[in-house]
Design a protein around this nucleic acid. Sequence first.
DNA 1: CTGAAAGCGCTTACAG
DNA 2: CTGAAAGCGCTTACAG
Lengths: 338, 338
Amino acid sequence: MATMREVAERAKVSIATVSFVINGTKPVAPETRARIEAAIRELDYRRNVVARALASSRTHILALLHPDLESRPNATVIQFVMSAAHGARERGYDLVLWPINDDEQMSHLLAGGLVDGALLMEVQIHDSRVDRLIASRVPFALIGRTENDDLPFVDIDFDTTIHQAVDHLRSYGHRRIALVTQRTKAAPGNEPGRIMRAESAYREAMAILGSPPAVITVEGTSAGGREAARALAADAPEATAVILMNEGASAGLVKGSRALGRDVPGHLSIVSVSTTRELGEMIEPSLTVMEAPAAPLGRLAVNALIDQLEGVQDAPPHRLIPCTLVPGQSVGPPPSRT
Amino acid sequence: MATMREVAERAKVSIATVSFVINGTKPVAPETRARIEAAIRELDYRRNVVARALASSRTHILALLHPDLESRPNATVIQFVMSAAHGARERGYDLVLWPINDDEQMSHLLAGGLVDGALLMEVQIHDSRVDRLIASRVPFALIGRTENDDLPFVDIDFDTTIHQAVDHLRSYGHRRIALVTQRTKAAPGNEPGRIMRAESAYREAMAILGSPPAVITVEGTSAGGREAARALAADAPEATAVILMNEGASAGLVKGSRALGRDVPGHLSIVSVSTTRELGEMIEPSLTVMEAPAAPLGRLAVNALIDQLEGVQDAPPHRLIPCTLVPGQSVGPPPSRT
DNA sequence: CTGAAAGCGCTTACAG
DNA sequence: CTGAAAGCGCTTACAG
C-alpha cells in the first residue's frame, strides 16, 4: 500500500497538505488540491486507519456490548445488530461485537483504547455494567434503560405499545386481558428493563380499564408457552385475551391452548408484543403482533452515540420508538357468554 | 490511562523491557519482571491496542463481510455471527461487522488496513467478492465455497446432510421425495453454493434410490411456501415426502399443504434442512429438521482464519460439518395406497 | 538479560 | 495557503 509520504512526494507537497485535503481540515489551493488528488488516484492511495487512529486518538470504532447470545438469539436482536452496523458504516464507523461475560472483562476491553464509544444491549434496571461503562469514561448509549433516565439511551416505547395492544383488544370487545411475560436469570426486581416496563404499562392500562390484572411469568421456550396456557386456564379463566411479552413462548402458548380445547382466537385472543412479523406468520393461526422497531432502534442508537462523540447538539430528543401493530389472525371477538 | 513509559519509569526499566514482559517476547529476569508487573498493577496499566497495531502491523481485528442483512436475517445467521465473535475474542481478536453492498466498497475497506483478516459469508459459486479479497491480499476464509475448492473455507456438509435426510425418510418407507429449494436474486447458475450443493446431493441420492427427482424453487417466504405446496400437488403429486431447503418457506408449506387438504405428515412428510430446532418447534406440527451447525461453523471459520494468520500448520483438515437430525412430528409413513 | 533508538503512518499545533 | 516537526504509544531489530 502506498503511504501518505509517497503521495506527498508525487504531488510535490508536504504530508501535512495531503492530510488537509484528505480530511478537508484546512483550505488548500485548487491547483495543489488537484495535484494531490491525482497522486492519490494514480497510487490508489488509501489512508491507513490505524495510523490515523493513533495520531488523532479517534479510532472510529464502536463496540456493541451484548450478553453472550450464542445460545438463543432472536430475530429482533439480529435486526438490531445489523442495522446498527450498517448505520455505523454509513457514518464512517466500524462496529465490533463484544460478547461480554463479566464486568471485569468488559472494563479490560474498554481500557484498551480500541473503541471511541460503546452500545450496551439488554440493559437491566440495576446494571453494574453501566457503572463500569461510566467508570471507563468511554462514551456510550444504552439499549434500554436503567432506573436512571438521565443516561443516554434508546428504547422501545412500551407505554405506547402496551396501550395500543390493549386498545386493539378492547376494540374487539375484550375487557379481561392477561399478560404473559418472561422469566430471566436476573435477580428478581432486576429483570431487563423491558419486562418491568411492559408489566407496569400493562397494570396501568388495566387500572384505566377497571379490570383486574393477571400476570403470568414463564420461560421463553415452547415449554414455557404451554405452561402459560395451563396457567391461564387455571388461574385466569376469565381472561378472553392475552398480551404476550415473551417471543419464545408464542408457539407453545398457541399449541398449549389448543391442547386444552381453547381455540385461538375463538376462546382466547393473543397479541404478541415486541417480536417480528415473520415469527407471527410462522404460527398457525398467524399471530397478531406488535412488531419491535429493531432496525430503526439500531440506527437511532448508533446515531445517538456518534452524535455524542462528534458533539452534535441538535440530537433528536425522541429516543423512544413504539412497536407497530401487524394484524394477524389471533385476535377476534371474545366468546359470547351462553 | 497510564502509558508504557510510565510503567517503565516506575519500574526503573526501559519501555522495551516492559514490552517484553507484556508480550512474553523475550526472557526477562524474575526480579525485573516482578517490578514491572507490580508497576502495571499499581498503575492499572492496559496496553493501548491501537499503538500496538501500528507498531506491529497487526491489528488483531477481523472483518465479517456479509450481504446487507438488515431485512430478512435468520436465526442461523446470528448464531453463526455470535459464535464467530465469541471465538475471535477468545483468541484475542475483535470482529467487526461489515455490511457490504458492492465490491468497490469492500475493496476500499480492506485497503484501509483495519483488519488482519476477513470472513466472507453467503459465498456464491462464482463470486466476484472473492476475487476482490484475493486482490486485496488480506487473508480470508470463506463461509461456503466457490467452484474453487482450494481456497480456505468452512461449509456445511450438504452431501452427508441430504443423504441422512433421505435415509431418514426412506426408513419410514418413502421413495418418492421432492426437493423444495430457494429462489435468490443471484443470476441463474450463480446461486449461493449451498443451494446448488444441496440440489446436486439430492439428485445424486435420488439416482441411487432409483427415483425421479422433483425440484421446486420458490421464494423464501410464507407465500413461497404456499406456492410450493400448490406446485407439489400439481407437479409432483406422487411425492410422499419433501426435503425443504428453504427455511423461510417452511411455515407456508405446512399451512399451504393443509389448505389443499394434504395433511402433514399424513399425506406429506417434511424434513427441513439447514435450519434451527427452535424454528421447527414453532410450527404445528413441529418440524423434523436437520439443524444447521451454525455455532460450530462460526468457531471453525474464525479459528481457521486465525490459524492462517498465526501460521499454525496443524489446522484441522476437516472443514465440513453436517447438519444434525432433530426429529419432530412432520415425518411419518407414506399414505397407504388404497 | 536490558536499553537506546528507529519507526509504524498518520494528525496537528505552530510558524511563516 | 503550505511546510517542518513533534508526537500518538507502542514493537522490534540491533548492540552490548
